[in-house]
Design a protein around this nucleic acid. Structure first.
Lengths: 126, 126, 126, 126
DNA sequence: GTGGTCTAGACCACA
DNA sequence: GTGGTCTAGACCACC
């Protein structure tokens, strides 16, 4: 067996994920400036180098653009938004399907169970 | 607020989760004996104390029973199985719905998207 | 005008370039282990973090692979070598052509001049 | 051996190089007056001392002459122009040949490869 | 031993 | 101010 009991995602990635979700949720809009590295570091209770790494990673993914001396900005391309949303959504669905399968639930049943569950729970949020 | 990142469930809980999934999948059946603490520790490449804690946690959840001098056994109650399965499944579905909602996806759309996705991806595993 | 007088390439990139050239020159062969981060750091008179970054960058380029607890290795794919060589060579030629053009030398003349030059200098190395 | 990286020519040399290229390209002709130190400093977004140093260096190379109270002028000698052009060109070609050799490319192949490359790329600029 | 992450604090170039 | 790089030293998970 010798499984590796997964370490936590690195902090810089957790923060990157958060920012991506914010973009997908339109809380951060294309062209908008992100907090400065130092600002974000304080806000996140983390070392500025960690945020630097987060921003570098996001830039590598072309999710943000950085202008020296000015700041870091959400990429202006509208396509990015849809692309990003699809990617995140697919990841979530994959992980969900995988978890359900591990419980021995077939794909048709996944949909059925989820449907019933949502309808049953529907009252609490609508 | 200095320590809000790096969640990463403790290893003893990760192992407990695995055992629960095994039970739900009927790979471990009611009344069946779990490997001894030492055995499990070796198999998992983990310190025996960690497994001890896992078993304590499972016992607290009434998922297993420990018989002195005999070992640790999956609880005999059949009801437990269904209850456990439902609980785990509900947790997974809750977490899924929550994630999708965070992306701004409505409940009806969750079902639609998932349905399309499963049908699109269906070919690869069926 | 307000030109920006180019800063030196970052050290971690200079080292990455060196390693790439070594691979292209077959001084480092596919599958070969690179010096450990700490070793390389001492050898280069540089902080281990800087080498770490070099190796990360090389991994991102798929030039090396890293095995936790074992080390960092040149990627095994033979195609990589040719691809890398072509890329480096193209960069050199581009930069050369650009420099010559800046001197107002036409493309045909570049070839002529270089040809004469190599033949004239040929004696010194043959 | 603590400082072998981060070459990056000093700015005053980068500017000197530019001026030399301008002369070789006949954008600055023999006898022509260079901008004053102050003027050039503003234009380059650099401290006047830096330009002063650039001009000193160019004078040392006999590329310009300084006339007290009048300014700095490109040397009048026509021979200088050809000499300078040849020198710069030779430096570029030497550096190019050296880089290609480091990649293990023979001299004949250098010409072949460059020729093919120019012909392949030729369309985009001609 | 290996690589990977994080902190603390510094200096730089760009605006 | 901004982001980008670097150092020093630490702790972790993996082998």
């Amino acid at each position: 067996m010798t499984e590796e009991y997964k370490a936590a995602k690195p902090i810089y990635m957790q923060i990157a994920d958060k920012i991506i979700v914010s973009i997908v949720r339109r809380e951060l809009t294309p062209g908008e400036k992100l907090p400065s590295v130092r600002e974000m570091a304080v806000k996140s209770g983390v070392n500025p180098n960690t945020i630097q790494r987060t921003y570098s990673e996001l830039e590598r993914m072309e999710v943000v653009e950085t202008k020296r001396g000015q700041g870091t900005f959400v990429t202006e391309q509208e396509e990015l938004f849809q692309e990003l949303k699809n990617k995140v959504q697919r990841e979530i669905m994959d992980s969900f399907i995988d978890s359900m399968r591990q419980l021995g639930i077939s794909e048709e049943k996944i949909l059925d169970d989820l449907s019933s569950y949502i309808k049953g729970e529907g009252g609490k949020n609508s």
